[in-house]
Design a protein around this nucleic acid. Structure first.
Lengths: 182, 182
DNA sequence: CTGATATGAATGAACG
DNA sequence: CGTTCATTCATATCAG
């Protein structure tokens, strides 16, 4: 994983102007990460909208130089900006896809199998609940002497998330919640 | 710095108007940001507790759909919820890290009082879910030589970096803006 | 009404 | 490039 450092920049006169908006939001920004000024963002956005998506090294340099006029900035910031902007644009496209505005939600009952994978569920660690539980689920006999420390990290799932191999149906979750729609 | 779809509050506090989107749910509050209903939170929490930490796009979509039954909700809300929940839990865990005060204090008896987050890292490492995704999100059919790898290591100068030659992108769009410095 | 806290939202940075 | 982590910002909610 990453980690290894925690921005501890005590303080630094970050030129976080943010043109005209002295609204108490002084935000004692730390010097940890680049904080683009509105002018910089405006220009970057303009470039993006103009069609620039993956600037070359040269372009990045030039852009960076230009933007440095408005405030501190490094080439990598420009690089990252474009990377993120492009990615998020697409990501958002996906997440906000079907909105609930004029919801054309199917009022029908017929099952459109195109997208219904009503079987992906979240799996319980190891224990499968089969009996009725009258007490909190965490009362499982989860005892793992040594490993717990090593795995304390994060479930390192790769790109694709999980689904899971259902072996047994968790039909009766602790709280009467049905997670079967996943 | 763009969008035009979802709300977006510029840090400098200005554009306040939401593009009419998130209409709060329960408690008929004003719009502005999603306010999960108790049922929604309950379900989300349960999913999380069951091991789901970073739902895939598909899962998010499904969860969102399910939760929409209890109130207004969008996919991004679900996305953010998990993102935040995971982050905060880790954040909290780290804060109460070892070597703070009296290291020896707890751990011998799960605290009883409130049902806070006093969970001694019993969280399951990874055995969360196996994959079964029917349609992997990233199904690129191109084999692009991964060469570009940049990593800022010095914050002094950032002129020499980015040495990649990958770019079959629209190179130089006819920018008739004042961005001709590129 | 005001300050503190919880949490939704956004985004810079980086990993695989 | 898509995905994930960390930090920050803004606002809803709650305590006093």
């Amino acid at each position: 994983m990453d980690e290894g450092m925690s921005g501890f920049c005590i303080r630094s006169g970050s030129v976080r102007g943010k043109s005209g908006s002295t609204t108490s939001s002084a935000t004692g920004t730390k010097c940890g990460r680049w904080n683009p000024t509105t002018e910089q963002v405006k220009l970057l956005t303009e470039l993006f909208r103009s069609g620039l998506r993956t600037p070359s090294t040269d372009q990045i340099q030039k852009i960076s130089t230009q933007l440095s006029f408005y405030g501190k900035i490094e080439s990598k910031n420009v690089f990252y900006w474009f990377q993120n902007h492009k990615a998020r644009e697409r990501q958002k496209r996906r997440k906000v896809s079907f909105d609930d505005k004029d919801v054309i939600r199917r009022q029908n009952s017929f099952n459109t199998s195109t997208q219904s994978l009503a079987e992906i569920q979240v799996s319980e660690p190891d224990r499968v609940i089969e009996t009725l539980q009258l007490f909190p689920v965490n009362s499982f006999g989860e005892s793992e002497p040594e490993n717990l420390r090593l795995h304390a990290n994060e479930c390192r799932d790769s790109s694709t998330m999980f689904s899971y191999a259902v072996d047994e149906q968790i039909e009766n979750p602790p709280l009467d919640l049905r997670l079967s729609f996943l």
